Simulated scan of single mutants.
Amino acid sequence: MPGDEDEKSTAQATRILELLWRHALPSKPGARGPKPGLAVDDVVAAGITLADRDGIDKLTIRAVAAELGLRAMSLYTYVPSKDALIVLMVDAVAATDTPIPTGVAVRERMIAIATQLRTELIEHPWLLEVSPWRQVLGPARMRRYERQLSAIDGIGLSDLAMDRAIAVLTDFATGNARLAVAAAGAAAQLSDADWWEVNGPLLAQVMPADEFPLAGRVGTTVGEHYQAPADPDGAFHYGVAILVDGILGET
């Protein structure tokens, strides 16, 4: 029945929020909890370790339980599902944020916002596989948002513009991080220099120069300069500076 499904969804959402804000909520008298000796934080940390090492595709309740030396069923005492665990993991990673510099110009603070997000995604590539849409906000992600807003508050942007500025910086950092992670994965199999040494001359042979005059010229220059198909790090520094200057130009 639809009513039963709605109640189930509400119960699941409530449980996830309670877990996210577990350190802020008072304990319920007489409530049955997990067995002593292990905490939800331990389960979340084990999930992050496994996802960092093996990727999110390998993240299962059974695998996390094995990481902790437990039986799979016992893990449900701590987290109700894999989806709930991932929500907790995302918030736990955000809790490791370093403070955004305060004694610098707003331009540097905005660049720091994007740089921090990009670094997090490169260090935890599985985050790129987690949908950010309707992502439940836990205390760490709310504190991050508060710090990000504080970094640009008072510079002449409206509330809506401040939110959009952070969203644009986040989207740019995410897209670039995705490219950087892909580049690192490819380089682990074959170095960029070796790849270009093989593919560069072959491309020059098969690509009609008169059909792609600009692509051929610019592509050759770029390939020889980077010794790679692209330069994610350089593109980030170049792009984020222009992006921030554009946002500040609206103030």
Rank of each mutant, 00 (worst) to 15 (best):
V43E: 00
D41S: 11
L25K: 06
I48R: 01
Q12S: 13
P2G: 07
P36D: 07
L25N: 05
T14K: 13
S9Q: 12
L19K: 03
A13D: 02
P34F: 05
L38K: 14
G37M: 08
Q12I: 08
K8W: 10
D52W: 01
R22A: 15
L19W: 00
A46T: 03
T10G: 15
G33E: 12
P26W: 06
L25Y: 05
W21G: 02
A31M: 07
I48L: 05
A24M: 14
R15M: 05
R53V: 02
P36E: 09
D52E: 03
I48T: 04
M1I: 12
L25I: 05
D52H: 04
I16L: 01
E18H: 05
G3T: 12
K8Q: 13
G3K: 07
Q12T: 10
A11T: 07
W21E: 00
A24W: 10
S27R: 14
K35G: 13
E7T: 14
R15Y: 02
L17H: 11
P26T: 04
T49I: 15
A24G: 15
D42S: 03
A39W: 11
Q12A: 11
V43L: 02
G37P: 07
L25E: 02
A39Q: 14
K28P: 08
T10D: 13
A45S: 07
D42K: 06
L17F: 11
A51G: 02
L20E: 01
G33C: 08
R22W: 09
E7N: 13
V43G: 01
D52N: 04
K35W: 09
A46K: 03
T10W: 13
V44G: 03
R53K: 11
S9M: 11
G37T: 04
W21D: 05
S27H: 12
K28L: 13
G55T: 05
P29L: 06
R22G: 06
D52G: 03
P34A: 05
A31E: 10
L50D: 01
V44Y: 03
I16S: 00
D6E: 09
D41K: 11
T49R: 15
G33M: 11
E7R: 13
P2W: 04
D4V: 08
L17S: 10
V40T: 12
I48C: 02
D41F: 13
E18M: 13
G37Q: 10
P34Q: 02
L38D: 08
E5W: 12
D41Y: 04
G55E: 06
R15A: 01
D42W: 05
L38F: 08
T49G: 14
D41V: 07
K28Q: 15
R53G: 05
S27C: 15
G55R: 00
P36V: 10
A39L: 08
E18T: 07
D42R: 06
D52I: 03
W21K: 01
L38H: 12
L50V: 01
S9H: 12
G47H: 03
L17V: 04
H23S: 10
L19M: 06
P2K: 06
I48N: 04
R32A: 14
K8P: 08
R32F: 15
H23W: 11
E7Q: 08
V40K: 02
A39I: 13
T14V: 15
L20I: 00
L50Q: 05
A11C: 06
D54P: 09
S9K: 14
D42C: 04
D4I: 09
A31R: 09
